[in-house]
Every structure is written in C-alpha cells, then in structure tokens.
Amino acid sequence: MRYGFLDEDAKKEIRRATLKAIAIPGYQVSFASRELPIARGWGTGGLQVTLSIINEDDCLKVIDQGCDGSVNAVNIRNFIVSVTDNATTLDTQEATIIQSRHRIPEEPLKEGQTLVLQVPYPEVLTNVEADSFKQKVMHANSDYAKLWVLLYEDTAQFGDSRIGHRYPVMVHDRYAMDPSPIPKYDTRKLHNNKALILLGAGREKKIYAIPPYTKVEPLKFEDRAFKVESFENKKCARCGASGVFMDEVHTDDGTVKYYCNDTAYCDKKLEGKL
C-alpha cells in the first residue's frame, strides 16, 4: 500500500484546503473528503489531515478522550502506522503530530508541533441555523447575532451558557468557530498556542485551522466570567496530580475516584518526570 493510504491527488486536495485554512484562521474550507476504511464519525477528518501532512520524519501520538490506549486511539494509530511505518510515542513532548479526539494534552505544546483535532460538527452555527447556505452568509457577514441570543437566553435561564463542551470561540476577531468537543478547560489553551492546530471534519467535508500565536477567545458577555470545569480539592488517585482535567470513576464498592484524564501526563507524573 502507498505511504499514507490516500492517493496523491487526494492528499494535494487536503493540503490545498489546509493551507487556505491556515491563511484564514477559523474559516471552514470545504474539501473533497475521501472515504476511509474507518467509519465516518470515527475520526476520518482528522485522519485525512494526518495522512496528508505526515512524512517520514514525524513522530505520531494518537489520543482519544485523553488516552493513548483507548480502543479508538489504538485503532487509528495502528491504521496510520500500517500505512506509514512511522514512529509513535505516548509522550506529548516527543510527538511532532498529535491526533486527538476531545482533548488537548495537559503538557503545553511547542512550536513545530501540529495538533490535529477530530471534528464531528464543524459548523458552530448548526444549532441556531440548519441551512448551510444561510450559515455561509452569516459567516460572510460575521453575523453571530443568533449565537449571542442563545447565550443570552441560557444566561437568563441558567446563569450561564448551557454549552459544556464545543464552546464557541472567536478566532482572530473574525470567525466564530467550533473548537471540536473539547471541554471548556481546554478552550483557553487555543489562545496563543505555540503549535499549529488543524481541525478536520470528514463527514461534513471541512478543514479549518488555528495557526500558532493566534487570538482565540470564548464567545461570552464581558461582565461574565468564563467558567471552566474545576476539580477543586480533587487529587488523582494514581499520581496525586491536582488542577488537571479529571475522569470521575465510580468503583464497584460505590466510591468515586478521580484520575488524570490525560493518561500520558499521569504516567509521566508517576515516573517523576514532571
């Protein structure tokens, strides 16, 4: 099988979209998404981006829900390795390409690294406007009134936005963007990140990007704080870390335990490397 599975024209199409996405931060570039031997909705957007940008010098890390060993991460990593023979790692620092679903690693990313996020719903407006042409017009006019109305309604009723994950962000003061289903805890990491962040939606056939050092702000009212998930007074039952995003685990004896969600971070902490 050829390196990277996709034929050269498919890769060039994805690379074209990737370059335009980098040039227009937060804008969704349409591309001719190819079918892969992995199901739609299971990371085919991220996978197509990774397969198109990866080369022999890259070291790959794949995570799902913060975990390198999760079944979907294993499956995607095995597939990429089977078509590239590239080196892989669990270490966030060592990786040049990190493909992830739903999390941004705890350890800060560096210049030269690329974070590829798998995206189920690339369109931030989808919950307030279903028609894709109208969505495009709203983006053209930077008209996000409906998002503000939603935020206002939620705040009036519940004291805050009802959105727990996929919290809408404004990129470079121009485009409202869906940051993929990351928790709000990770939303802040998008701002001025040193790594290139590429977002791929295979089923919806869209690629978009946040270049390094780009202004990314959650959509919120000025007089309201952006509340992120907090795990106050909680410590990882495995490595003892605190102040990180945690998994809540209900044990057989009825107790609740907390663990670092980022398992590679947890390992490193346990080995005393952090």
Binding site: R2, R15, I22, L196
Partner: peptide, 12 residues
C-alpha cells in the same frame, strides 16, 4: 511523493 510530503511540510 516523498519529496512532496517533505516540501509540503516546509510550505505549511
């Protein structure tokens, strides 16, 4: 194709 991969990385 290998050359393209490496050169794309430089452009990106």
């Amino acid at each position: 194709e290998k050359l393209n991969r490496q050169n794309f990385k430089s452009l990106s």
